[in-house]
Design a protein around this nucleic acid. Structure first.
Lengths: 194, 194
DNA sequence: TACATAAAAATGAATGTTCATTCTTTTTTT
DNA sequence: AAAAAAAGAATGAACATTCATTTTTATGTA
């Protein structure tokens, strides 16, 4: 098992360097040589862990996306009432976007760009199922508007990406009070009135 | 006036080619040679109209952003009541994102990427003022929640970008009914209840 | 434990390509 | 016929990837 012997630390350093450089310079301005340098590794070593640059970026995307959803659902279980469950997941996602800012920025960039292969993109979406199930339950109980999952995501979750990016640009700070306001807006947009 | 003599058509073709190629391949995979080919122009000619590749992309961004806001406010005037004015602007923006899909996709990509210089980005934001003024009026009249402009934009406008991208990926179609639902979600998220 | 050796991992330097940009010449416009 | 615009080919740098070698690790033997 050659693969298992290779240092997992090196692989992680490569993934981390990719995220950091792509965040700061964009995909078009992150050469393999810089990734190698930041990970303290020779350029040739990258090819022991990844097929090529595209593969490195794809795998990085899928891994970060998996971390994201893992974090989002870590404290959730399916027996929770709809509103409480949504609040919990929403807060975990907000938390992730604020605390794991580098990771979240990377995902935001990948999600609006033809930088990632379609296959990896689909792979990344898979783990969102618990949220979709919660919404289905909410619709059935008449708590959540009978809208497409895409619309619900667009209004309840995606605005957090915009806010995170805006905060990263420095023009705006997302404090505790803003977060509660954001939650209220998110919930207002998808709950059934009265 | 050398500049005025140069063909405006050629310039437009270059801008259009840039948008199309960046949308489909990403900035990292759109060489100047391809842009030239798509615009039916020699690579050298690009440099008669733009300083370099970065300048071409920056200028393209600023121009498309200007078109976007021009379209958004074309039928609005400041004497309208807040809710009607918001509905009007929202619909124009939705229209732009659906009809001028190429332009809107390009903006979405630029807005989540370090592809554009900070200066051009700031230049692009300027023209949004009428919407910010409308929101200020709405807050004063107690119609719109007393939230930061960034939060209002995140919930009322930005979801349209997500929906447009999702539609472009083909998994979801944004029809008339969806649009009305989206509007209701947008308005719900920022209006003061009762 | 100490050493020898084979396998694996890692490296720096090379390779060949692609690309942004510039140069020189040609074509078009005035 | 002069000036401006456009062109295609040339230039040199940057880059992804591979190659030939060296270093590290694991294993077997005394």
């Amino acid at each position: 098992m050659a693969k298992l012997q290779k240092s997992i630390d090196k692989r992680n350093a490569l993934v981390k360097a990719t995220i950091e450089l792509v965040n700061n310079n964009g995909f078009h301005a992150t050469p393999m040589s810089k990734i190698a340098k930041m990970a303290n590794v020779s350029p040739a070593t990258i090819y022991l862990y990844f097929e090529n640059k595209q593969d490195l970026v794809n795998k990085t995307y899928v891994e970060v996306k998996a971390e994201y959803t893992k974090y989002a659902f870590a404290t959730y279980n399916e027996t929770m009432p709809v509103e409480a469950g949504f609040r919990l997941i929403w807060n975990r996602i907000a938390d992730f976007k604020l605390k794991e800012c580098e990771n979240a920025m990377f995902l935001a960039q990948c999600d609006n760009t033809p930088m990632i292969d379609e296959l990896s993109r689909q792979e990344g979406i898979k783990h969102l199922q618990p949220l979709l199930d919660l919404w289905e339950r909410g619709r059935q109980e008449g708590i959540i508007k009978p809208l497409s999952d895409y619309l619900l995501y667009a209004y309840a979750i995606n605005p957090l990406s915009f806010l995170m990016i805006t905060q990263k640009r420095g023009v705006f700070t997302l404090d505790k009070a803003h977060l509660e306001e954001a939650y209220q807006s998110a919930w207002s947009s998808i709950k059934v009135c009265q």
